[in-house]
Structures are given as C-alpha cells and as structure tokens.
Nucleic acid binder design. Structure first.
Lengths: 250, 250
DNA sequence: ACGGCGGGCTGATCTGGATCAGCATCGCGC
DNA sequence: GCGCGATGCTGATCCAGATCAGCCCGCCGT
C-alpha cells in the first residue's frame, strides 16, 4: 500500500486516474464514479469472482490487488486472457451477456467494487461523458487482447515475454504503480505460462535468457528493466494501441 | 446476391437480423438502424477501408461481402484478428481511439455503410435499446477474439481449424448465409494461415487431414461439414460465447 | 496462345518449444 | 523442527509445425 493523503478523494482512485488519460472528468462525473464504488467487497486468493456459465450479470472495478481472467478447456488446460490491475474492470464484457463466458479470480487478496448492469446503465444515462470514458476503457481492454493475439500468433517466446512485460509496465504506470525502471509484480512463472501460451519450463528459460542478455530481470516479485530501449526494440513495442496520450501529461 | 422481396425493409439487413438475436427491436429502433445505413459505399478487393494509425474516427457496417481486420508487424508478417461478414461492424473498437490500431480491408468486393462517431453516439441517445444492442454486438466481437486467443494458445492446428470453421458457420447462419451442412467461403488458405497463426503449407495439410477423416471438406470456395457432431467434439466447440440464443428462434 | 501469377498441393528437412524427470529452496501448518 | 506444497530452476529427449523447394492447374491480360 502506498501513502494516501489524509482525506482521500475519488481522484486518487486508480479508475479515475485511468479514465483521465482519455477525458478530463468533471467533479460531477467523479461523483458518479465514486457512487459506483460504494459496494466494496474483499476476495481471497483463488476465490472465484466470476464463473464461466454464471447468469447474474455483475462486473467489478478493481480497487487494489491483482486478478486474472481465463477460460478453461475441457481437458484441463487453461488460457489466461488477461491480468487485471487496480482501476481495471472485471467481467465488463459479459455484463450484457446472458451467461459469462470466462472466469475471473484474484491472484493476490483483492478489494473490488461490485457494479451491476443496472448501476452501470443508469450511470451512463446520468453522465454521457462517463459512458464514453468507460467505452474507451473497454476498447482499450479489447486492444490489449488483440495484442495478446498477435503475441501468440506471430511473436517468438522471447519477444512475447518482452512485449507482455512492457505492456504491463505501461498499464501500471498509468495508475501510478510503476516507474520506467520497473515495477513489483506478483505473477508466478506458471501464470505467465498460461497467459503467454508457453510451458512454465520455457518461461523460466526465456526469463533467464533475457536476464543474461542484460535486458530485464524478473526476480523476487519485481520486474526490472535493465535496458528499456533494447526491450522496446526487441518486442517491437508500439504503445499506440494503449491510447494513453491523454489530456493529462503522461 | 440472393433474391430480395419487392420492397426490402431494414428487417432484411444482416445487422438487424443479428441484433435481433439479442433484443427484439421496435420499428422505431429499426428506423434508426436504417438511418445508420444511409451513407453506403463500395470497396474493391484489397482497398484499405481503415488504416493503422489513421486518425479520423469512422467505422463501417458491412452490408455485403467479406472483409478482414489485421495488424502488421515490423518484419512484414501479419496477424489477422478476425474476418467480417455481412452485419458486422468494422473498426468499431477504434471509433473512440485517437488513432486506429489496426487495418481493415475487403476480401471480396464489399458494400458498407459509413458510420461516424457522431452518428453512432446520437443514435444511442435516441434509442437506448439500440445502444445496448450495439454494445452487445461489440461484446460478442470481443468474445470471438478471446476465443481466437484460446485457439492460438491452447489448441492444436487441427482443433483450431475445426473450431474456427464451426464458429464461422454459426456466425453466417445467424445472418442467413449458411446452413448446418456448410456454407460458401471466399477465404484462401493464406488468409486462414494468417488468421490461425499457421503457415499456409500447414493449413493445407490440416485441411487434407480433416477431409480424409471425413469431418469436413473445404474446396472450391465451399465449406462442407461431413460430420458435424464429430467436429464439435474434436474442437470442443461450445457456442455459449456467441450468446446467440435470442428472442427469435435460432 | 502464351506468359505470368495466384492459388492449391506435396516431400524433405529443420527447430522452437513441449514434455519428462528431477533437484533446491522457502514459507507455512502442525 | 519436520513434512509438504508452491515455486524456481535445469538437463535430455521428442514432436508439431515451420521452412525450403518445388510442381500443377486455371485464369487473366496482351
């Protein structure tokens, strides 16, 4: 946990920070955002927050902690679709679906605010600007999934890893949880493997290789960029798809 | 081109058909939909409709023909993210972005209606029900991308191919362009390769294998399901993620 | 009527990453 | 303070799918 001012306002929330990268929100907008944050809940590691096939249409906004969304295949293997960090929506995509098509569970202990379909739609009616901002966030999420698709389809294991960790760094910096030099990261090599479509064994080797090349170090729950520019080059990382160049300075 | 009734109404449009799988649209809603269809344009094969990096925020609704959206990597390879068939949106994801993060181009000659960000947002304001329907369609698009991600991450080439062609069949049937027995399909083996993260050579072998196993035949621009149930089994195809069980019978 | 070329198709070879098998360390519960 | 499950790490072997090299056919343009 980082230091908080004595009277934390919703301005401090990761969600507000993130949305501000897209539109400058008025105090009215921010009030509506903070209303969305009312029903705060806690979840322990591995407790399912959203389950494949469930029919109640609720989503969450992550306030603290990390989560991941994934699909299980008959056969037992799973594909992690994405990780969620503070400020991210969980299950936004299936609020409109009759049944959820994926699972979401915490990787670390998590605080999240529950948002129902009704809440969301009525908040949209109240402030169209917020609606636009949320749709922007949803588009950004999809853009990230697409980039993961490119990872799996056309990038080598090493490029994939570099690209993924760079993206994660950019996302975390946007909500104030990382610097250009690196960030702390609770992901195990198994989780990375399931997300990147690799085996855990190979993830290990790739990380070693990147470390020995002096490009990045991932150890003890911390990612350190040893040579940021070389990584960007290697991964052909072009942050345009994140659309982070907002009204606030980056 | 298929036969049309003497006075075609917007009800016949693939988009309306598709959205009807989710909500029953009123005649008012349908009028708004048909307004969206006003600015009809034609595009030849390979003419870029949307370009990576472009800044004008327009999308299209496909009225006839097939298109594909893809990303190019420095190095020349490309990853096709998805194909679009009549009734699908093109570039919806980046209407809200400052710059488009992908390309879209026709695979066959195409008729499409141009929709600007303004058009769309004002249509939403007019009929919230339509807004919901469009968001549903966007969610379905994302669900398909996620399923493609699972394809690339965790399914073998054969499973991948089967899964993909089954999904395409389901999508086409929804807009009245295919039957359970098969559908006509203008995709070359090169396009399939770029979409499924395979080499064209391997696509060829996989198709041969599926044919020799008596599961499906893809020849002369037509996909024929020779053993639908076996395919569903092989690919572990669960259409839940398409959320097609709508108010109209399927 | 003929060259060129986009597609389909094939065999031979190579390789990135999976799989299998196992060891070392650490934190935690009892 | 001991056992045990997670996690990190490593070597040896295997294989799905890439790559390379080419042939055949039908179509289109001149």
């Amino acid at each position: 946990m980082t230091m908080q001012p004595a009277t934390p306002t919703v301005l401090d929330s990761p969600l507000a920070r993130k949305l501000s990268a897209f539109v400058r929100l008025s105090t009215d907008d921010l009030r509506v955002v903070s209303d969305l944050f009312r029903r705060r809940r806690n979840f322990g590691i591995g407790v399912e927050m959203i389950h494949q096939g469930q029919t109640d249409q609720t989503a969450f906004v992550l306030a603290s902690g990390w989560a991941c969304s994934y699909k299980i295949l008959p056969g037992g293997t799973r594909q992690i679709v994405d990780f969620q960090v503070p400020g991210d929506f969980l299950g936004l995509r299936s609020v409109l679906f009759r049944t959820s098509d994926h699972n979401v569970e915490p990787i670390t202990p998590v605080q999240a605010s529950e948002v129902t379909q009704r809440d969301l739609l009525s908040a949209f009616a109240e402030t169209p600007r917020l609606a636009t901002a949320v749709l922007w966030a949803a588009s950004r999420d999809e853009a990230m999934v697409v980039e993961r698709l490119v990872d799996l389809g056309r990038r080598s294991a090493t490029e994939r890893m570099a690209h993924f960790l760079l993206e994660l760094g950019a996302r975390l910096r946007l909500v104030g949880m990382g610097e250009r030099s690196g960030y702390s990261c609770p992901l195990s090599q198994y989780l990375l493997a399931d997300a990147l479509g690799l085996s855990a064994v190979h993830v290990n080797r790739v990380l070693r290789e990147l470390r020995e090349e002096g490009m990045l170090t991932f150890q003890k729950g911390r990612v350190t960029f040893d040579d940021y520019d070389a990584l960007v080059e290697l991964a052909a990382f072009d942050r345009a798809y994140l659309d982070h160049e907002g009204p606030l300075l980056t």
